[in-house]
């Protein structure tokens, strides 16, 4: 379960304080698929960064599976990122000097686990069995994002976050990628939180949370 309690977050920009999140309270149950929507600059990415433990709120608490993120040490937070949660980025963020296989092996390498076979299997599941040794520069955008998906899923995380995963893709490729992401949550009790400004994508989720003026509201389907 993912819980946000009374989250406040602001940024300083050119001497001005911008309040991005004001008293955000969210509870997401295990296995739920949630879309976070909002206009550009509304604070979607900020909310995602706080939810995933990548950033800290000014005040408030974040709980992932009962663990208060603000009380976790750096090691505990790292373990959480490695095994319980995973992220898919809008710009894919593959390591350019790693092959597709090595990019997918990365979370396992970090955990000092045996990696090659599991990584090959993950890539096969996303349809890239023939691209194992390709560098990111040799892959198309859709292929890169599929590698990123495989990397995110290789450790079987409980929560999957996706930051505009189809933002850099054409509609056809985007649809393919989205279906992979959505399918990732099915049957595994995996929670999915996806940032999107695409209403069509949002409609496919169990819940839609709309962020506006720093406040999050449940939006009707």
């Amino acid at each position: 379960m993912l819980e946000l309690k009374n989250i406040y977050k602001s940024y300083k920009q050119g001497g001005e304080v911008i309040q991005v999140l004001s008293g955000v309270n969210i509870t997401i149950k295990d296995g739920e698929r949630v879309a976070i929507v909002g206009a550009s600059g509304s604070g979607k990415s900020t909310l995602l960064s706080i939810m995933s433990g990548m950033d800290k709120p000014d005040s408030g608490e974040v709980f992932i599976n009962g663990k208060n993120l603000s009380t976790l040490s750096d090691s505990e937070l790292s373990r959480l990122r490695n095994s319980e949660i995973a992220m898919i980025f809008q710009s894919f963020e593959l390591v350019p000097s790693f092959s597709a296989l090595e990019n997918v092996m990365l979370p396992l390498d970090i955990a000092s686990m045996s990696a090659k076979i599991e990584a090959e299997s993950a890539l096969t599941k996303v349809g890239l069995a023939s691209r194992l040794t390709h560098l990111p520069s040799m892959l198309s955008g859709g292929e890169e994002q599929r590698v990123a998906i495989a990397r995110a899923l290789v450790r079987n995380p409980k929560i999957l976050f996706a930051d505009e995963p189809t933002g850099n893709l054409d509609s056809t490729t985007g649809a393919q990628v989205l279906s992979l992401i959505v399918a990732a949550g099915v049957g595994d009790e995996r929670t999915l939180v996806i940032i999107t400004h695409d209403k069509g994508i949002a409609q496919k989720m169990d819940r839609i949370l709309e962020i506006k003026d720093g406040v999050v509201r449940e939006s009707p389907q």
């Binding site: 750096d74 090691s75 095994s83 963020e93 990365l106 979370p107 970090i110 955990a111």
Partner: peptide, 16 residues
């Protein structure tokens, strides 16, 4: 620098 951010996002600790 970008690689290091990705590693951190996937749980790499500071000492690694």
């Amino acid at each position: 620098s970008n690689d290091m951010l990705v590693f951190t996002a996937f749980g790499a600790q500071t000492k690694l």
